[in-house]
Amino acid sequence: MTVEIVHCPNCSSKEVSRNGKTRHGKQNFKCRDCGRQFVLNPEWKPITEEQKELMSRMLLERISQAGIARVLQVSEDTVQRYVNSQAAAVKKQVDVTPKEKKRLNVQMDELWSFVDSKGNQQWVWLALDAQTREIVGVHIGDRSAVSQAALWDSIPPVYRQCAVIYTDHWSAYDSVLPSKRHQSVDKDSGLTSYIERFNCTIRQRVSRLVRKSLGFSKKLENHIAAIWRFVHHYNANLQL
């Protein structure tokens, strides 16, 4: 009878002892040298760099996390852990091409969304450069003047100094934006058409924002990160 010699996958030591059973009934082993616990032929395997790259690209499309798990044949928990790690790392500041101090045209609008339940409304405030089509400001919060002020603070200084801002007639804009450079316009004027078109784009590309979808956010941090991730992707592709 041949006795299989078990090696530790961490340090390759042969000093391995049996250490009970896992909750799935598999034999558990423990290395006496490094203390690593393991099973032979584990079903769970860490995701590869290639899978991470595919996951990042699919998160930019209209694909739910459950759908990503099915495509990559990994668990939903694995996808969720990756999303959480990416949410913590995403940059929450716009990257735009440098602008000269001259007249700039900015369009602003707010987009309704929710987290966990429709009672927890989270408005996506956006500012767009009408010449370059870049998103130059982002804030996620309520629909008050406080959130509008946060959007105003999020845009680069050159826009705060030089831009003429076009918005709809929502009262929060009047209380924050410089009155001499702010113009409230009707939708049929065409002066907010680019930002309204971007609203359609982001709703179609970010599954968390799709109306009547099951792919909604359960954590505010992940909701905010998904929006910022797409904004960075959108601006980067404009500059190609």
Rank of each mutant, 00 (worst) to 15 (best):
T2Y: 05
V6T: 13
V6G: 10
V6P: 08
N10H: 06
S13M: 11
V16F: 02
S17K: 14
S17T: 12
R18Y: 13
R18Q: 15
K21G: 02
K21I: 07
R23L: 03
K26F: 08
Q27K: 12
C31W: 09
R32A: 07
D33A: 12
D33V: 14
C34P: 04
R36G: 00
L40C: 05
N41P: 00
E43W: 02
P46R: 11
I47R: 07
E49I: 03
E50M: 05
L54C: 15
S56V: 04
M58N: 01
M58I: 00
M58A: 01
M58E: 01
M58T: 01
E61G: 07
R62F: 00
S64C: 02
Q65K: 14
A66C: 06
A66W: 08
I68T: 02
L72A: 05
S75D: 13
R81V: 05
S85E: 09
Q86G: 11
V90M: 07
V90T: 13
V94N: 04
V94D: 04
T97D: 09
K101G: 09
K102W: 01
K102T: 11
M108S: 13
M108W: 11
E110I: 02
E110Y: 03
E110D: 14
V115N: 06
S117N: 14
G119M: 07
N120F: 10
Q122P: 03
W123F: 13
W123K: 12
W125D: 09
L128Q: 15
D129G: 06
A130L: 08
E134P: 12
E134D: 13
H139Q: 05
H139W: 14
A145Y: 15
A145S: 15
A145D: 15
V146I: 14
V146N: 12
Q148K: 02
A150L: 15
D153H: 09
D153F: 02
D153K: 14
S154G: 04
I155N: 06
I155L: 13
P156T: 07
P157N: 12
Q161Y: 01
Q161F: 00
I165C: 07
Y166M: 08
W170N: 10
D174F: 02
P178V: 13
P178C: 14
K180L: 04
R181H: 03
R181D: 05
H182G: 07
S184A: 15
V185R: 09
D186G: 04
S189N: 06
G190I: 01
E196Q: 05
F198L: 11
N199S: 09
R203S: 02
R203P: 04
Q204C: 09
Q204D: 15
R205A: 10
R205E: 14
V206L: 10
R211N: 11
R211D: 09
G215P: 02
G215C: 13
F216V: 11
S217Y: 10
K218H: 14
E221S: 07
N222P: 02
N222Y: 05
H223M: 05
H223C: 05
A225R: 05
I227K: 05
I227G: 03
W228T: 09
F230K: 06
F230Y: 15
V231E: 11
V231M: 09
H232Y: 07
N235E: 00
A236P: 00
L238W: 12
L240Y: 08
